[in-house]
Amino acid sequence: MSAPLLQLDGVHTHIGAYHILHGVDLQVARGELTVLLGRNGAGKTTTLRTIMGLWPASSGAIRFDGAEIGALSTPEIAHRGIAYVPENMGIFGDLTVRENMLLAARGAKRVEDIDTACLDRVFGLFPALKRFWQHPAGLLSGGQKQMLAVARAIIEPRQLLLIDEPSKGLAPAIIQNMIAAFRELKQTDTTILLVEQNFNFARQLGDKVAVMDGGRIVHAGTMADLAGDEGLQQRLLGLSLAAHQ
């Protein structure tokens, strides 16, 4: 087996006086979608933010593509090929969709400088963005804003996407559109670490799964194994995935 693209070993994170992550051990396989599950407050978002350097780890090691990145700044981590889509999406509502995309394409000074193949791929995944290209992003629907947030993350080649609850607050029909887009994105061999509370969404997309509780990883394995074991679901998550289909 090849080495994981991302590996966390014994990662602790403190935020002020609060000890949030208590020795997280996590591996994200290259070219796969790993889902990070857990109850509210388990430490999932903190894990993503720690990987991205937004909240520095107090101790432990974070390795990306074989190199230690735990001491790097967020811009340096992004430059290595990691993109982060936060739960609040991070788009600029006063700017147009076009302007949001241009800001995300760091190597471009004009839209014409954006790689045509990348832009075509974005429009293929999210056709609504092409329709609303000149519209202020703040006027988009919740689903369209989420599409824009993901599109900003992939407008340049990335090795790893960190995505926090992309289906939160979306209507069921829009969630299905997002699932279809993520399936297409998976075909490009993009590696994804996804935090998600919608278990049907997670079940349909995940290759691997890690479950957090109390700031630690308490289970890691394949999504197929977790989806097929209701007893394990009840023990780890307090619910059944079947109830969320």
Rank of each mutant, 00 (worst) to 15 (best):
G31P: 09
V85S: 13
L37Y: 09
G90V: 14
I62L: 15
G60W: 10
P86Q: 12
D65V: 00
D65A: 09
L72D: 00
P56R: 13
N88V: 11
V28M: 06
V11T: 09
P86D: 12
P56H: 08
L48H: 09
I91R: 02
A42N: 08
A29N: 06
T74W: 01
A83N: 11
T45N: 14
E87M: 11
S73G: 15
R39L: 08
M89H: 14
A29Y: 00
E32F: 10
P56Q: 11
G38M: 14
G53N: 11
A17L: 01
V28E: 04
H14W: 15
A29H: 04
R30F: 12
I62R: 14
I62M: 15
T47R: 08
T34C: 13
A83C: 10
A71V: 06
T50M: 12
G66V: 03
T13F: 07
I15D: 01
R39A: 09
T47G: 09
L48V: 11
F64N: 03
Y18Q: 09
T45K: 14
L33R: 04
T74N: 01
I15Q: 06
R80H: 14
A57P: 06
M52N: 07
G90Y: 12
G66F: 01
D25G: 05
R80F: 11
E32M: 13
T74L: 02
G60H: 10
S58D: 06
E87H: 12
D25Q: 07
T74D: 02
N88L: 11
G43Y: 05
D25R: 05
A83E: 08
A67R: 14
T46I: 01
I62G: 15
G16M: 03
H22G: 00
L72I: 02
G31V: 06
T34L: 08
R49Q: 02
E76A: 05
M89I: 09
M89A: 12
H14T: 11
P56Y: 07
L54F: 10
A61C: 12
K44M: 00
T50Y: 13
I91G: 03
I51D: 14
G43K: 02
I20H: 01
T34N: 07
L33W: 03
W55V: 15
T46L: 02
M89Y: 11
G60Q: 10
R49D: 04
